[in-house]
Simulated assay, not measured.
Amino acid sequence: MLSARPYLIDITLLRGNVPSWTDYPFNIPAIQQLETLTFHPAVTYFIGENGTGKSTLMEAIAQIMRFNPEGGTRNSLFSTRDTHSSLHEYLKPGRSYKAPKDGFFLRAESFYNLASFIDDVEYTGSYGGKSLHAQSHGESFLALLTQKFKGGSLYLLDEPEAALSPSRQLSALAVIHKLVKAGSQFIIATHSPILMAYPDAHLYLFTETGIRNIKYEETDHYQVAKDFLNHREQMLSVLFEEESQKSPID
Rank of each mutant, 00 (worst) to 15 (best):
N68I: 03
R81M: 12
K54T: 04
Y90D: 07
T73F: 01
P69Q: 03
G71S: 10
T73D: 13
L87D: 10
L57Q: 02
S96H: 03
L87R: 13
T73R: 06
I64E: 03
H88N: 13
S86D: 15
L91M: 08
G71I: 11
L91E: 07
R74S: 07
M65E: 12
H88V: 02
K92M: 11
I61A: 03
F78C: 09
R95Y: 14
F67N: 06
K54L: 08
E70Q: 15
H88Q: 06
F78P: 02
D82A: 10
M58W: 05
S55K: 08
R95V: 13
S85F: 05
P93Y: 14
T83F: 06
P69T: 04
F67A: 06
Y97G: 13
M65H: 02
S85T: 15
A60F: 11
S96C: 01
T80E: 14
T56D: 03
M58N: 05
F67Q: 07
A99W: 03
R66Y: 14
M58L: 15
A60P: 09
T56A: 05
K54G: 05
T83I: 15
H84E: 15
D82P: 00
F67D: 09
I64C: 08
R95Q: 10
G71M: 11
L87V: 12
A62P: 13
A99G: 01
I61R: 05
P69Y: 01
E70I: 01
S79E: 11
L77G: 01
F78I: 11
P100C: 05
A62S: 15
S79K: 04
S55T: 15
P100D: 06
S79V: 06
T73M: 01
M58Q: 08
H84K: 13
G94M: 09
P93H: 11
L57K: 07
N75Y: 00
F67V: 09
T80S: 11
E89L: 15
R66V: 06
N75L: 01
D82E: 15
H88W: 15
G53P: 08
L77N: 10
L77E: 04
T52W: 03
Q63T: 07
E70F: 02
K54E: 04
R74E: 11
N75C: 00
I64T: 02
P93S: 10
R95A: 04
G94R: 10
S86R: 14
K98A: 08
S76Q: 04
Q63L: 08
E70K: 01
G71Y: 11
S85Y: 06
L87S: 11
K98P: 00
G53D: 06
M58R: 07
G72Q: 08
I64F: 14
K92G: 00
T56N: 02
I64M: 13
T56P: 03
N68C: 02
D82L: 13
S79H: 01
G94L: 07
A99F: 02
H84N: 14
G53F: 10
D82N: 14
T80F: 13
K101W: 02
D82M: 09
D82Y: 12
Y97C: 02
P100V: 05
L87I: 12
Q63C: 13
E70S: 07
R81P: 00
L57T: 05
G71E: 09
E89I: 12
P69H: 02
N75K: 01
T52L: 06
I64V: 14
S55L: 07
F67C: 08
Y97F: 11
H84A: 13
T80W: 10
T73I: 02
L77K: 05
E59W: 01
L87H: 11
K101I: 09
